[in-house]
Design a protein around this nucleic acid. Structure first.
Lengths: 118, 118
DNA sequence: TGAACATATGAACAACTATTCATATGTTTA
DNA sequence: TAAACATATGAATAGTTGTTCATATGTTCA
């Protein structure tokens, strides 16, 4: 009747585990953080965001710049808008998109720093 | 013989498109940026990174803290290591993981800022 | 040397997601 | 009002990825 428990059930360094558990963030908070990064985790969307960080653009021009179909761009803009990373304004037939927030640019810049360094 | 070209082929604002195209980053660079964010785009990995930002941990303790199986943690650590976000050192049977870089903490902090604000 | 243990890994499966294609919506203008 | 055009969207498909299960690797210690 010995404890044959595997690693999964046994803590090796009790003190440290306790300390880390205390400082652990809420499940929910880390989940929405992951969701935020999911949006950045696609090169099409990154291209779109980068382009928009240069200038406001309409969907049509955006499609040209990032070399995607209008439909694909539109689908992705929807995702970006839901994540509150871009906003849009309509002027007649044309809809213009731009970054919603300065964080977007910061996040991209910080990421590039890491990428270029490694 | 009119130009019936669709949006996909026609540029609406020539000046702006030219300007944005000039400032567009390399395909490759934006691709590795997206790849970097892919690593952050999963709540299991975010949990692991957050835990490691508190303290160096062995795989076993990490599994306890983030409530995952040892195998799942190990698979994810592999991903994190390949992305150079964590490093490891071995001490006997036990392998300790820690953040490889201060960028990791910065990126998480910046993301949280955005998440909490919106 | 062999048993016990911490970690790593390959294969398989399930879940998710980006694009395409077809078409709908909404706006302008002839 | 009808045609032309910019954008949006639903369904289907193909590709990607995280977890599990089983097992392998590497280390210590009796």
């Amino acid at each position: 009747m010995k404890k044959i428990e595997q690693c999964d059930n046994v803590v090796i360094h009790e003190e440290i585990v306790k300390k880390v558990e205390e400082q652990m963030k809420d499940e929910e908070e880390l989940l929405s953080l992951a969701d935020l990064y999911k949006v950045f985790a696609d090169s099409s969307r990154i291209k779109i965001l980068w382009a928009l960080s240069v200038s406001e653009l309409c969907v049509c021009d955006l499609a040209v710049v990032v070399k995607m179909t209008q439909s694909a761009v539109s689908h992705q803009l929807r995702v970006l808008k839901q994540a509150k990373l871009v906003k849009s304004r309509r002027d007649g037939k044309v809809v213009y998109y731009s970054l919603d927030d300065d964080h977007v640019h910061q996040i991209i810049a910080l990421g590039l720093e890491h990428v270029l360094e490694k």
